[in-house]
């Protein structure tokens, strides 16, 4: 399970095949030739043959040309890079140093000496640090995700630790449908190439857009309102010459 859940750029294609590649699965079953799958296979073959005949008859050229061997799968694919958090966050101490810069400390600096409290689930319950942290994430408490034995890592539901950089593994435990959509390119912003045989792609991770403590997507002010009437001054065209 962890293998599949970890967000590994090179595995993107693999997911697509595992979920979307129905034809691949069929072929494997037929090779086993078990009696139950035999009937399924025959039905599939008939259906495919019938479908192809129909496609020919209804002369859908695009569809007929559709399943040609893809050039893309032969060429080496460029990577899909998922942006990751730089590492464990640092906490502002509220003081500044000699140069006027804020002094921050690693989580472990304080938490190494403080006693973890499994019941805490908002910063309001704390008397120091993390004040004002907005929390709205279901019924979770801090230690649902933060690792009480090593605060510079996160904690999976089964108790194993996971690096901050691999936060998506953590989120994906509960938000399975979002992770599934993400894995298939149907959730989360991206830039770069749709065709990985021609260039790479960069993708956001969960916490690029969702504050982990208050994950609801924030309200935004819409940009670029439409204009309905032509507001171009008439004389402008003449002035261009």
């Amino acid at each position: 399970m962890p293998q599949e859940l970890s967000i590994n750029p090179q595995a993107m294609r693999g997911w697509n095949r595992a979920v979307g590649g129905g034809s691949v699965r069929h072929r494997n079953r037929v090779s086993k030739l078990s009696t139950t799958t035999w009937t399924v296979a025959v039905a599939a073959v008939v259906a495919v043959a019938g479908g192809m005949a129909f496609a020919q008859k209804s002369k859908a050229p695009a569809q007929a040309a559709g399943e040609i061997p893809r050039v893309a799968s032969a060429a080496p694919l460029h990577p899909v890079t998922i942006q990751r958090p730089a590492g464990p966050p640092r906490v502002n101490t509220g003081t500044t140093n000699f140069h006027g810069q804020a002094v921050t400390v690693a989580c472990g600096t304080c938490h190494a000496t403080t006693q973890p409290n499994a019941r805490t689930h908002t910063s309001a319950e704390l008397d120091q640090f993390h004040q004002g942290l907005k929390y709205a994430h279901g019924e979770l408490n801090c230690l649902s995700c933060h690792n009480a034995t090593n605060y510079d890592t996160l904690r999976l539901a089964d108790g194993r630790s996971v690096e901050f950089a691999d936060v998506m593994t953590l989120c994906g435990q509960c938000h399975g449908s979002q992770l599934r959509d993400y894995q298939h390119g149907a959730h989360g912003g991206m830039t770069g190439y749709w065709d990985l045989s021609r260039g790479p792609r960069t993708r956001n991770n969960c916490v690029n857009c969702h504050d982990p403590h208050s994950p609801k997507y924030p309200l935004a002010r819409p940009v670029f309102p439409p204009r309905d009437r032509i507001s171009v001054p008439v004389k402008a065209a003449a002035a261009n010459h």
């Binding site: 309905d228 009437r229 032509i230 171009v232 008439v234 004389k235 402008a236 065209a237 003449a238």
Partner: peptide, 13 residues
């Protein structure tokens, strides 16, 4: 013709 049909009241709607 010179300034375009912007001189009319027509629009993309």
């Amino acid at each position: 013709v010179r300034d375009g049909l912007a001189v009319t009241a027509m629009s993309d709607h």
